[in-house]
Simulated scan of single mutants.
Amino acid sequence: MSLHTADERTVLEGLLDAQRTEIALLLDELDDAEARTRLVSSMTTVLGLVKHATFVEKVWFHSRVAGVPREDLRLPRTPAESFELAEDDTIESVRADYDDACDRSRVVAAQHDLDETWPWHDGPVSLRYLYGHMIAELARHAGHGDILVEQFIARRPVGTD
């Protein structure tokens, strides 16, 4: 079945999974040093973007929808802190955490209807909204990451990419 003609839930899940894949692919063309390198004045690095994407998966699906307290998930207090890298963060470890978070998010979401809602500081939020929010969030960060990856590739000698 094509996403172009699928039912609403299949479309939303398919679009979200496409963005999840784009986030994971950011790490494919870099080594650990490049993935940790800051090219902009903010804390943003390619590895940090993937770590942040793990954070948003856990905040929304694991905590908000599944009801696991944020402390139990050992989440950073703020979104900005979710970009911070630990000494032992590597492409392999951050990707594994991200893949695990996405897998858990899929399991959590599958147990709920699109119209089901959860409290949020701006009022109730539905699973339908959450899918849309996550698609936009991950697409934005995948774009940021694409630009950073392009910068690394552009710096390499011709024929090494």
Rank of each mutant, 00 (worst) to 15 (best):
F152W: 03
T37C: 10
S41M: 13
D113Q: 05
L25W: 07
V149T: 10
L47R: 01
V68T: 15
R95N: 13
Y129D: 14
E71I: 12
Q19N: 10
R9Y: 03
R155P: 05
F152P: 00
V59I: 13
L15D: 08
Y129G: 06
E150D: 15
I147M: 14
Q111C: 03
D115T: 15
S126F: 02
A6M: 09
T10L: 11
D122E: 14
L16S: 07
I147W: 08
R20G: 07
T160C: 12
I91V: 12
M1P: 07
P157Q: 14
V65G: 05
V11P: 02
T54P: 09
A139L: 06
E81Q: 15
T160H: 13
E150P: 08
V94N: 05
D103S: 11
E84Q: 10
R104K: 12
I153S: 08
V56C: 01
R74F: 09
D72L: 15
R20F: 05
F83D: 02
A18T: 11
F83K: 03
A110Q: 06
A33G: 12
A154F: 09
S82V: 06
L47C: 05
L127T: 01
L3R: 04
D113C: 01
P124R: 03
L16R: 07
G143Q: 11
L85Q: 05
P79N: 14
I147S: 09
S126C: 03
E84W: 05
H4Y: 13
D17G: 09
A86G: 08
V11Y: 04
H112N: 15
E29I: 01
L73G: 04
A66F: 10
E84R: 12
W60S: 03
E92D: 13
S63F: 00
P157L: 11
L148K: 00
S126Q: 04
D7Q: 15
D97R: 12
